[in-house]
Amino acid sequence: MARTLTQSRFRKPSVIPGFGLTFGFAVTYLSLIVLIPIAALILKSASVGWDEFWRIATDGRTLAALRTSFGLSLIAALVNMFFGLILAWVLTRYRFPGRRLIDAMVDLPFALPTAVAGIALGSLYAVNGWIGGFFDFRITYTAIGITIALIFVGLPFVVRTVQPVLEDLDKELEEAAATLGAGRWKTIFRVILPPLLPAVLTGFALAYARAVGEYGSVVFVSQGIPYRNEIAPQLIVIKLEESASYGPAAVIATVMLALAFLLLLCINLLQAWGRRRFGSAG
């Protein structure tokens, strides 16, 4: 098998062995675990028929859930973009006690299970919680609570995409701007931020995509009231539980998946654009 592949135009010849075995295994495994199941999802959603698909996809509750998911995720991603940029800046540019600790802590949302984050945030922001007690309006069980959970899960993305670019940024550029008469703010906005833009946008898109799909932490801070603060993954679970056929759940999932792919495509285009324009992206 490996011999025949060596001769084919599919890949360049190489003396290194094992292509057939590893490639074959990887593709088979990928197909079994990821591709076939996802194909099943699309097949299922298609099998309900176009009219039914459209009816479920544009149903008021579905649209409300999608709007909640994508809307609150957008807010969370914007918050993360703003604070992520500040965090990345502070971590790369300043030296202060506890910097390494903060730097390490940024990855916490990658390592901490969402259920743990959810239960902690849910209790902290509850009306009688440590933080919730300070506010005279509800946070848990509202859109604010969901947004806080989504901020948590997406927090590291912008920081971790911007940080390496900021570290590689030549200090001479800032000095050059200063010798040319640019004040510090003009230097930041005209010289430092433009090259960071692709990395910032990439981090933003990643945080956004992550927040849109989030389920674990949200269920602890919001029960999901239909039409009000129910997120799309919650609706999928409910549709799966209440309907004997899997059609409705599959349709909503397919719509979400399509939107997520659109985001992924945007990320790739952004990175390609960034590489073209600035030589490197985040």
Binding site: L30, I38, A40, L41, G213, V237, L264
Partner: peptide
């Protein structure tokens, strides 16, 4: 192929569960 490997990151965990139910 690399894009496909990254795919599960952009799929909501709920959908990951759903596909196996289907």
């Amino acid at each position: 192929l690399i894009t496909l490997i990254d795919l599960p990151f952009s799929v909501s965990p709920v959908i990951a569960g759903l596909v196996y139910v289907l």
